[in-house]
């Protein structure tokens, strides 16, 4: 299943794109741990702080019965 993923700030710089259609494979499981999936695909994310949101809600997991329109990965910003 493909879901739109938006990458914010430093994350977009680290992985080189600001969004993509991301392939999520549930296989036999109902729930997936998103952080480990993103960290595995983009090891640069391992060393930074970030939040994961399904539509407007922050979470760490995605359930096959409640698929959002989009996923967002947000790091903290320092600038002012």
């Amino acid at each position: 299943m493909k879901i739109k993923v938006n990458y914010y700030g430093l994350i977009a710089d680290l992985i080189g794109i600001s969004d993509e259609n991301f392939e999520l494979n549930f296989n036999e499981s109902n729930e997936l741990d998103l952080r480990s999936i993103f960290n595995h695909k983009y090891p640069a994310l391992l060393k930074i702080n970030y939040k994961i949101a399904l539509d407007t809600e922050f979470t760490e997991t995605i359930n096959r019965n409640s698929i959002p329109n989009e996923i967002s990965l947000l790091p903290p910003f320092a600038g002012g």
């Binding site: 914010y8 700030g9 930074i48 702080n49 939040k51 947000l74 903290p76 910003f77 320092a78 002012g80």
Partner: peptide, 28 residues
């Protein structure tokens, strides 16, 4: 706070509402 072309805004600790540490518990 801002980063290149992006910005984040919120109000924290308003009427026992969320704080910055509810978003990012520890500093990077």
């Amino acid at each position: 706070s801002i980063y290149k072309f992006e910005g984040q805004v919120s109000v924290f600790n308003y009427n026992s509402g969320p704080t910055y540490r509810c978003l990012f518990p520890t500093p990077p």
